[in-house]
Amino acid sequence: MDGFGSDFSGKVDTGSIMEQVKVQIAVANAQELLQRMTDKCFRKCIGKPGGSLDNSEQKCIAMCMDRYMDAWNTVSRAYNSRLQKERAKM
């Protein structure tokens, strides 16, 4: 990454700052999701931690990941439509 959107004249380029901020936000969101998903699926799928991640555990985790994404999207849509309703009331 270059010096936070400044060119050789030392002037700050707004566009490139915005781009970098957007990338950082996307990374932060991905980390947030990954952390929560790992926590939730570990709780659901790993009963007693054994010597390795066995086949049925892997299957469970894969399914859990997909359902977590479904749940995330459902929550996002429900929250969004609630916001629209609240705005319409005002």
Binding site: K40, R67, D70
Partner: peptide
Amino acid sequence: QLLVHQMTELCWQEKCMDKPGPKL
């Protein structure tokens, strides 16, 4: 986004998700 993360987590572990199945 943050509230979506928090609500997903809360509703998942306390309320709605018993055992993740092949589809929602």
